[in-house]
Nucleic acid binder design. Structure first.
Lengths: 336, 336
DNA sequence: CTGTTAGCGCGTTCAC
DNA sequence: GTGAACGCGCTAACAG
């Protein structure tokens, strides 16, 4: 009892293999009468026939598979995958997972996947503002349909799915103001040494300054090294009660909670806290639960996959804009 | 400038296509002299030749790809993927992602992937103690190499990678005792209505009872519905200080923190808390950070992928044990 | 309009 | 080490 082939189906249905193929792919140029068509479908069902994807792929040159590349340590990547998978399934594509390990050869291996005809397109989940022009050039040269989630915000030659970080800050500020009537301190946390803030943080900062400026308030920005969280306690000890703080990042909010506990301040009463993202998906487990802005990664992944597939199939209009913007989402908690 | 084929490589190296293939696959039965071999390798490098995976797959009948099936809402699945990817890469395999959506047709689609020759094997991340015998039978009948992470603990016909939940409890109890000298209350949380506890929870409970019994203590078990967390406050108000509690699940620990805050109890001083898992990966963000036992999902994913690949390649001895046990891991925090 | 024939794509493998 | 067949589905050209 071996695998049935299109040959077997053709014989059982009393037609040629070409008709079987035509029925399955509605091939233009080959018309099939309804009854013959039905005979083919019956034969397929009876035998449990399945097209050999490899044989089809070899003939057509496409694999109907795209790869998703990202950091498997980051839980947000899972959301991207979820969205991408959704889009793939709707389009009849498969999703190949390729985890980032930080090895330099990985980029070549991604290209190799394409050259081996294992994938038709590539989607990467990059860190905010990431850009690797050398890689982008290689990809373009190879002709690999490519789209980045959160990367290459300023490279017009690379297609990206982006979130509007400025809007996320305005959304948070409006929410805090509506709930408390106060103007928050902004905490910009960073890892390691203070450097030039990255793309996302630049836009967040600018939005904060503009929002405060429009209301005649002077911005109060506190730069916090995640490696020296003690500084936070000093800052917070000097704030009147109640005050509100808006953190650029979940990790900073966690430190604020910790410092508040040390000072005997009750979050949600003596101190309002909001996070401009939900990187760790831990917001709702915080006590009290942390209000935040969410980056809609699933939606971004879905949009990315959809677009890569269009690209791979040559259905993307060449004048399509390189960047697609997805709006942030407000996730209220108990901390504001 | 089109894609180079093995034909092109052969011509450039002055050999037949069979030799190119033999060089690439160290085919037994075809000896290639060192200089010819080198000529082939040079030609490959010069042309940038890559084997067409589809053509190879069509000929060999294998795709060198396995699928991972699981719930994309669960961050732990990402860890499984990470481990699986690692194993796949080492073996030269690709990982196809298939997200669980809860639709009944999914099982058929997984089988279809195999019948279409898109995958050589399947790995599923199931919930603890899960078992679907109908699916397992289908898979077996189809001949699809299959292994479950955390599922089918009692079905000897299905291969699984499992964690020893009893050991996780003993590990936690030993740790708490060593740090505090106390005997914890055990909190068994559940969703919805109280029912028969599942496989993992049964083993946890039994281990708790046995451990307490060995020390001449009578077990103190509190069953908690996650939908009625108020009951927890009552329980905790009645405990002496300091006391310790061991929760079967992260979500229960989060509720304990919340109740402690309401009662003015300081976790880590008035009350010691430990979680028997880290499902939400939020432990280190809790204030204070939550001590817990971790399920080593990455390791389990790696073991699963490795085994599926062996199975697919027919390298698995038929007398191999159906279950592989991976030990739990202690993750100390500040709460104990 | 409906359908057939034949060749193709590309790497693998068996007989020599 | 070589030559040739093979795997399986797609599709251009062609015929009834």
């Amino acid at each position: 009892m071996k695998r049935p082939t299109s040959q077997d189906v053709a014989k059982l249905a009393g037609v040629s293999r070409a008709v079987v193929s035509a029925v399955l792919n509605r091939t233009p140029g080959i018309r099939v009468s309804p009854d013959r068509r039905q005979a083919v479908l019956d034969a397929i069902a009876q035998l449990g026939y399945r097209v050999d994807a490899q044989a089809r792929g070899m003939r057509t040159g496409r694999s109907r598979t795209i790869a998703a590349y990202g950091n498997l340590d980051n839980p947000m990547f899972l959301q991207v995958l979820q969205g991408a998978q959704q889009s793939c399934m709707q389009a009849g594509y498969q999703l190949l997972l390729y985890g980032k390990n930080g090895q330099p050869q990985e980029q070549e291996e991604l290209l190799a996947l394409y050259q081996e005809r294992r994938i038709d397109g590539l989607l990467t989940k990059d860190t905010t503002g990431f850009a690797d022009e050398a890689f982008a050039a290689l990809v373009q040269q190879a002709g690999l349909p490519f789209i980045s989630v959160e990367g290459y915000p300023d490279e017009v030659n690379v297609l990206s799915i982006l979130m509007d970080y400025g809007e996320s800050i305005r959304m948070a500020l409006d929410y805090i103001w509506q709930r408390t009537g106060g103007y928050p301190v902004y905490i910009a946390a960073y890892h390691g040494k203070p450097g030039e803030p990255r793309w996302g943080d630049r836009h967040r900062l600018a939005a904060y300054e503009a929002w405060m400026g429009e209301r005649g308030e002077s911005p109060r920005i506190f730069r916090l090294s995640l490696d020296e969280p003690e500084a936070l306690t000093e800052l917070m000890a000097g704030l009147p009660q109640p005050s509100s703080v808006l953190c650029n990042w979940f990790a900073a909010s966690a430190l604020v909670y910790r410092a508040a506990a040390g000072l005997g301040l009750a979050v949600g009463r003596d101190l309002y806290v909001m996070s401009a993202d939900n990187t760790a998906q831990a917001n709702r487990y915080m006590v009290p639960s942390l209000s935040s802005i969410e980056v809609p990664y699933a939606q971004m992944g879905a949009a990315a996959a959809e677009r890569v597939i269009r690209l791979a199939e040559g259905r993307e209009p060449s004048d399509a804009p390189p960047k697609i913007w997805i709006p942030p989402r407000l996730a209220p908690g108990e901390s504001v």
